[in-house]
Design a protein around this nucleic acid. Structure first.
Length: 249
DNA sequence: TAGGCCATCTGGTCCT
DNA sequence: AGGACCAGATGGCCTA
């Protein structure tokens, strides 16, 4: 097992144990190159993983909106909060978390902070921001759906940062594979145009095999050893999102 | 218990 | 003025 291959399996260890075997089965032809710290460190999937649960609640409109009014201490904000529970789409704004604790402090802390701003305006701004973040999450879900990793209920959803890093590396890999393919086609065309003998079967096999090899493990050079997170395994350059590389003086 | 991830609130800035 | 975007702060949930 070469270095890159080891890294692939190393990354695979970030996914849930239940889905690890499944992921290992796909890891050979995909580009799992997420720094370990960005991988999911959780190894159990109960069917109610937090992210999935929240998304389900969001799209299915089935979650229970949090209600600050449950706590008498927060009566002041609870009246306005009712208008904050649903945005203009009619979608519930709360999550499945503890309804009375999460936003309570924040709301309370905001009271009187900016008296100039009418409460209704603030609530509408909050709802808008919430909607914006939901749209962003929807887009991230869309991205997750098209990048190769184990799409299985037994595998926890990729984190946001892992999704972005994986997508970036996947794009770079596709570009490189395309480039390799073009070169191969050019090589074959060249051989056809020449009157001389065609490349030997062994040479062709060698070329094809090196193509396949580089398509999967294009970078096995020193860059891998440079970063403990192996952020450059597929890109050849350290990721700007790699904390380790960015922390370097 | 610490660390990772996340949703939400908030105030600031920029644009239309 | 209102909306979009952004980053910081806060606190909850989960796992090792």
């Amino acid at each position: 097992m070469n270095v890159a291959e080891g890294d692939l399996f190393h990354s695979a260890a970030n996914i849930s144990v239940k889905g690890r075997d499944e992921l290992n089965s796909i890891v050979n032809d995909t580009y799992i190159d997420v720094p370990q710290r960005y991988g999911q460190s959780t190894f159990s999937y109960s069917g109610t993983s937090r992210g999935a649960e929240i998304r389900e609640s969001w799209s299915g409109q089935s979650c229970t909106p949090y209600s600050i009014s449950q706590d008498p201490k927060t009566t002041e904000s609870s009246e306005d909060q009712t208008g904050d529970e649903e945005d203009s789409d009619g979608r519930s704004a709360g999550s499945t978390r503890n309804p009375s604790s999460d936003n309570e402090g924040k709301l309370k802390s905001s009271i009187g902070k900016k008296d100039k701003e009418p409460r209704s305006l603030r609530l509408s701004i909050n709802a808008r921001e919430r909607r914006r973040m939901h749209d962003l999450n929807d887009a991230l879900d869309g991205l997750r759906s098209v990048i190769p990793y184990a799409h299985s209920p037994s595998v926890r959803k990729l984190s946001k940062i892992a999704t972005l890093l994986l997508a970036k590396n996947y794009i770079l890999m596709q570009a490189q594979a395309l480039d390799e393919m073009r070169r191969l086609v050019a090589y074959l065309n060249q051989g056809q145009a020449l009157t001389g003998p065609m490349p030997s079967a062994a040479a062709l096999t060698n070329t094809l095999s090196s193509f396949g090899q580089s398509a999967v493990y294009p970078f096995t050079g020193t860059s891998i050893a440079a970063c403990p997170d192996k952020c450059a395994v597929y890109t050849g350059t350290p990721s700007s999102l790699c904390k380790h590389c960015n922390d370097k003086p």
